[in-house]
Simulated assay, not measured.
Amino acid sequence: MFSSYNIALDPMIAKLRLHAEVSDHDRDAMLALPCVLRIVDKRRSLIRNDNTPEYGAIILKGFSFGHKTTRDGLRQIVSFHTPGQIVNIQQLFLKSFDHEIHAMTKCEVAMIPLSALRHLALSRVSITMALFAQAMVESSIYRQWMLNVGRRDARSRVAHLLCEFVVRLGDEGIAPGRAYYIPMTQQQIGDAVGLTSIHVNRVLRAFINEGVLFKKGSEVRFLKWEKLQDVAGFNSRYLHVGDPVEGVDYSNDAGHQRQ
């Protein structure tokens, strides 16, 4: 059943505000979007390959990942999704979907009719820019992942993925010894960085033995954060956190004129 005003969409708005200026009027307009809340169990599919979704899927709680599979059944994870992310933002502009999205953990997902989201984007320039900025940040992440798989060694690949994931959770100022929830399995890490799970296990064990991190299940403590960044060659600039375009005039925004 659709909700006429749903503050459950606040994680999406918070995510958009990392990269673009989103006013309170924009927030109200987005909260008024019709949406259905859906629970997706761990390892279940959110969106299937070659599907034509009618809904935009926003992760509210939990984590998911996108992947492509070769004809021989080999999987490459191409993205990890954190709360607030629209996992199929390309559907605003493209009809079909070209990869699959699976729940990495149990997820709470908001499903918004793409027609409603598209109409809102076309009527408010500021929201268009916010959505476009998210898509551009995802492209920036893809480029970094390509560099990671193509040119970094195994230690650097795993270290870079860990650094990125924690920063995307909003914790660039890492507190030494603090526990962070990192739900990827060693197989999933391997599928993201082009390594076997055995190789990933060796790399993680080396980091543990060197006192760089402590890991127990999905709980990870970064004991030497600066060293991990150094191994990774990590610079968070490509994530564009808190990097909105300034000085943009929205006075001709049709949505603002109707307020």
Rank of each mutant, 00 (worst) to 15 (best):
P244Q: 04
H240C: 15
L46G: 12
G170V: 08
P83W: 08
I77Q: 03
G170S: 07
Q257M: 11
N209K: 14
I208F: 02
R44S: 14
A133Q: 12
K68H: 14
I112T: 10
L131T: 08
D72K: 14
R221C: 12
K227P: 00
N6E: 12
L46Q: 10
R48F: 05
R157P: 08
L33K: 05
Q134F: 10
F222M: 14
N252I: 10
V125W: 06
W145K: 11
G211W: 05
V241T: 08
V158A: 01
V125I: 09
G73C: 07
F207W: 06
V200Q: 03
S45L: 15
L213P: 01
A159M: 03
A130S: 12
K224S: 14
L204G: 03
Y250I: 13
H240D: 10
L74P: 00
L223Q: 11
L161D: 02
R202V: 08
G150R: 12
F222L: 15
G255E: 05
H99G: 00
S115C: 04
I39S: 07
S218C: 02
S197G: 03
G190A: 03
A135W: 06
N209S: 13
I47P: 04
L16Q: 09
L228E: 06
M184F: 13
P34E: 00
T185W: 03
A154M: 07
I174F: 07
D253F: 04
R237T: 14
E138K: 08
T185F: 02
M1E: 06
P83D: 10
I112N: 05
I58S: 03
A175K: 15
D153N: 15
A192R: 12
E21R: 09
L114Y: 11
I127W: 10
L94Y: 13
L9F: 06
N201Y: 04
K106F: 05
R71T: 11
R38L: 13
N209Q: 14
R178C: 06
A135Y: 08
C35F: 07
M104S: 00
P83H: 07
S79H: 13
A14L: 10
S3V: 15
E219Q: 15
P11H: 02
N51I: 05
G170W: 08
I174S: 08
S115V: 14
Y250N: 14
L147R: 13
Y238A: 04
S139M: 13
D72Q: 12
H99T: 01
S251I: 12
V212E: 00
R205N: 10
S139D: 15
R124G: 01
R48K: 13
G173T: 12
K227Q: 07
A192N: 12
P183Y: 02
F207Y: 05
D24S: 11
R205Y: 01
K224L: 13
S115A: 15
F93M: 06
G255T: 01
V40T: 14
R157T: 02
R43H: 07
S123E: 11
I101H: 09
V167S: 03
F80D: 14
Q134K: 10
I86H: 07
F207L: 07
I86P: 03
S4K: 13
S96I: 00
A130Y: 06
